[in-house]
Amino acid sequence: MRKIFYYQCRRLLCNKLFWGLLAVTLWYSREVLYGTVIRGVCNTAPFSPWSFGYYLTLLLPFLCAAELFFLSFYTSPAERRVEVLASATPVSPRHYSFSRWGALAVGTGLLTLLILLMAGAFYARMFRWDSFGELLAPAVFVLVPALLFFLGAGWFLGNLRHVLLYPLIALPFLCAYLPLPRWLDPVGGRFFLTYPLELGVLDPGFSLPPDVLWGRVGLSTLGLLLLFLTRKKRG
């Protein structure tokens, strides 16, 4: 089990695609921090939950695209043939599946951790600020529902037909420009740009209106449901 997991991790992390995504994500992260976040968002401090949340929404499409690219390794026709061969070995199919999910979590988690560390280093260097606990709520709000949703949608569509994954990769980038209602937007960038102004308070604390909160809960639930349906279909 451990050897299979290490193999799957090497397969993702030693891939040129991973290093390309890593380089682009880190470069864009630096551009956003020093070009946008440093000025603050909606009259809030650069290290406020609102500015930090907006930073994450700009990086989120890259994280979702990376997650879907990693997932494409496991829904390709070649991988299906490997699964048939693996089923004839003493390795448990459940263990083999867990090793792949673990490797996918490591790849996506590593990219996520690096952009969080970039922000932390930026705040510590520029503002001598280290109250990172205040940033936990916007991080969960932005990252968890979207990554769960695109994981479930990617796994579902990729198992229907592998090629359907590639249009899905463009969706988080399109959502940043489409005029979606704030409760429906999986990226949530416009929420961070507009809602603090609606509160009418200078540098307000982080809070969520009910429609946005339930929208994120629904997005997470849908992602988990698609994962469950795909797993049940695959047996």
Rank of each mutant, 00 (worst) to 15 (best):
P172V: 00
R128A: 08
F191H: 09
G152K: 05
P210V: 03
G35S: 06
E83D: 01
F132T: 02
F73C: 14
F122A: 07
L208Q: 00
L136D: 00
L174Y: 09
S72M: 04
W19A: 05
I4F: 11
T57W: 02
S29E: 06
P90V: 04
L174E: 01
L148W: 02
G235Y: 12
R100N: 09
A170C: 10
A146S: 15
L59G: 02
L104D: 11
E198F: 07
T75D: 01
V91Y: 05
V84F: 05
T108G: 09
F122W: 12
G215Q: 03
C42H: 13
N15Q: 12
R100W: 01
A170G: 06
A176H: 05
Y54E: 08
L227M: 15
A78T: 07
F206T: 12
V82S: 11
L110E: 04
N15F: 07
L68W: 02
P209R: 07
R216T: 02
S72Y: 10
L117N: 04
F122T: 04
L213C: 02
G120R: 06
N159R: 13
L168A: 13
L58V: 15
K16R: 13
W19D: 05
L114M: 15
R100K: 15
K16L: 14
T112K: 10
A146Q: 09
L224H: 03
I38R: 10
P61G: 07
L226Q: 08
A119Q: 06
G20H: 06
L135F: 04
R216Q: 03
T89A: 13
R216A: 03
G35A: 06
G40F: 07
F150M: 05
G205Y: 06
P145S: 02
L56K: 09
P172F: 01
F141R: 12
Y28R: 10
D211C: 00
S92Y: 01
V32F: 03
A137G: 01
R80E: 12
L165R: 00
T230P: 01
G152M: 02
R231H: 13
G235L: 14
M1L: 03
V32G: 03
E134K: 07
A146H: 06
Y177I: 08
W50G: 10
F47N: 14
Y55G: 09
L160K: 11
G120T: 01
L208V: 05
L113Y: 05
A45Q: 11
L160T: 05
S51E: 03
P90L: 05
N15C: 05
S48G: 09
D203H: 04
S72I: 10
